[in-house]
Computed example of a mutant assay.
Amino acid sequence: MWLLTGALSGMLVATYFGGSKTPEPADESSVQQLGRPGKLGVAGGFLAWFAVGCPVCNKLALLALGYSGAITWFAPIQPVLAVGALVLTGVALFARLRGQVACPVRERPMEAAR
Rank of each mutant, 00 (worst) to 15 (best):
M110F: 14
L62M: 06
L60C: 03
E111L: 05
L34H: 08
A70D: 10
F74M: 10
V42C: 01
L63Y: 10
A102D: 00
P76G: 00
T72K: 13
A112Q: 10
Y16C: 07
P23I: 10
G6D: 03
L47Y: 08
V105E: 04
P55T: 11
G53H: 06
E28N: 09
A14D: 05
Q32E: 00
E107R: 14
V91D: 04
F46N: 05
R106F: 12
V91K: 08
M110K: 15
Q100T: 15
I77N: 00
A43M: 11
L8Y: 09
A102W: 07
G10F: 15
L60V: 11
F17S: 11
A113W: 14
G66F: 14
G66I: 13
A43K: 07
R106G: 12
E28A: 12
T72G: 11
A70Y: 13
L34G: 04
L63F: 11
K39N: 02
Q32P: 00
C57F: 15
K21G: 09
L3K: 10
M11P: 00
G10M: 15
L65I: 10
L47Q: 04
A75G: 00
A92P: 02
A92T: 03
F46M: 12
V87I: 12
G69S: 09
I71C: 09
G10R: 10
E28M: 08
G90A: 10
A102T: 05
L86M: 08
A75N: 05
G10V: 15
G99Y: 10
Q100R: 14
V56R: 13
A7D: 01
L8P: 02
P79Q: 09
A102S: 05
L12A: 09
E28K: 13
L65R: 10
S29W: 11
G41H: 05
P76L: 03
T89D: 02
S30G: 02
L12I: 07
W73Y: 15
V42E: 01
V42D: 02
F74V: 09
T5P: 01
A113E: 12
G6F: 03
G38E: 07
V83R: 10
P109G: 00
R114C: 11
G53Q: 04
P104H: 05
V101C: 08
S9E: 01
L4M: 01
P76H: 02
R96E: 07
L34Y: 13
M110D: 12
A64S: 07
V52A: 09
A113T: 14
V83G: 02
A7I: 08
L86P: 00
A92R: 03
A95W: 02
F94T: 02
A64G: 03
G6E: 03
A61Y: 08
A26G: 08
P76V: 04
K59E: 06
G18M: 01
P104A: 04
F94S: 04
G38A: 08
P25L: 07
A95G: 06
G66K: 14
T22V: 14
T22N: 10
A43W: 05
A48H: 13
D27V: 15
Q100M: 12
V52K: 13
A85K: 01
G53I: 04
W49A: 15
G45H: 06
K59T: 13
A95N: 03
G99R: 12
L88W: 05
V105A: 12
V31Q: 06
V42R: 04
L88K: 07
